[in-house]
Design a protein around this nucleic acid. Structure first.
Lengths: 196, 196
DNA sequence: GTCTATACCTTGATAGAC
DNA sequence: GTCTATCAAGGTATAGAC
């Protein structure tokens, strides 16, 4: 393989990858065909399979939550809940990318590989970051509870598209769901009398 | 159309419906083919389309959450949270059916019709029941917050299959996530200082 | 050996025969 | 009213071109 061939091949893979991530994240897995991706990348459909093996492998290779770098969990731990909901509702660019990726990953999670990828992305983006900031002995469980609540918010807003929630007063939603998230992090939730 | 023809036709549709609900709920939308359903119902594939119009229409016609009748939100309002999580973790028969249906609906929700059905099922099963039991003026918002949290629990357990959550101590999970759900119903979550 | 084009198989959906 | 034949679309493998 010559130097030029390497460059060309790498460039080709990059072009396919970009087209794939873009289409998978915007239209979802089922609605995106190999032929669509190939056309957007300006190559023959068989090239895509040749380089990535299968549609599913290409999906797993390209789609990511991308929330890791967003510093979405930064700031004082006691205010993470509300701040996070505000960030989600404000829809900055990086989160908009994550939005499509999350919906695509969740809807394609009947594949074991996609399901594993989604778990891994949530762990790397959310769970590990939260766990690292909480004291023992409940750090891990709290991180998973927090993540489950966040999955609920993302799924309600981005996958099921609950209009009542989208249309709700932004401040009220940020304050209330933020308080619920905050409870998972630092609230008194392990004594049976704490609820209510 | 004779009397017998009506019975036969109705019986046929019922057989197809049963087979469809069973396969869609257990294997999901994508992995279930019209030919599979037809074979299970003992009819020709074209009959299925003839009677229901399309695979998607058949899906929307058959798959339901079925949690409505479960009385899942019964009992004292102050203890609904923990009791509900315990019921979910205990996996009674009716909830096991709902589990597959929830995953199938969520994963097929890139279709507008399926998405609308899922919204409607959540409203009928959860949101309306919760809203009816809470006092104004926050009943509606609280119901939607509660539902979002519940979606998070279902999705984490049944769709993403978070093993850490599944393997967690059942009592600890019921108490803690129950407390979080309870906060959405009856907690002080609308003042900015309530969190933490 | 590496890339490309053609062909194949599954599956959803339709039209016409009986 | 039910079945057979067929089409169209899409994922994938294979054989041929350089």
């Amino acid at each position: 393989m010559t130097r030029h061939a390497v460059d060309r091949s790498a460039d080709l893979k990059a072009r396919i990858r970009d087209a794939a991530e873009d289409q998978f994240s915007s239209r979802g897995y089922a609605a995106t065909s190999i032929r669509d991706i190939a056309a957007a990348a300006g190559v023959d459909p068989s090239i895509v399979i040749r380089h990535f093996g299968s549609k599913e492998a290409l999906f797993v290779d390209t789609v990511r939550l991308r929330a890791r770098d967003a510093g979405i969990l930064s700031g004082p731990i006691s205010q993470v809940g509300e701040r996070l909901v505000r960030q989600v509702l404000a829809q900055p660019d990086d989160l908009v990318r994550s939005r499509g990726a999350f919906a695509a990953l969740l809807r394609a999670s009947d594949s074991d590989d996609v399901q594993a990828l989604l778990r891994q992305e949530l762990k790397a983006s959310i769970i590990d970051a939260v766990e690292a900031r909480l004291p023992p002995p409940d750090a891990k469980l709290r991180a998973h509870l927090f993540c489950a609540q966040l999955i609920g918010l993302f799924t309600a807003l981005w996958v099921i598209e609950d209009v009542e929630l989208t249309a709700a007063n932004r401040d009220a939603l940020a304050v209330s769901y933020g308080a619920l998230l905050q409870q998972a992090l630092t609230g008194d939730i392990f004594s049976t009398s704490a609820a209510g």
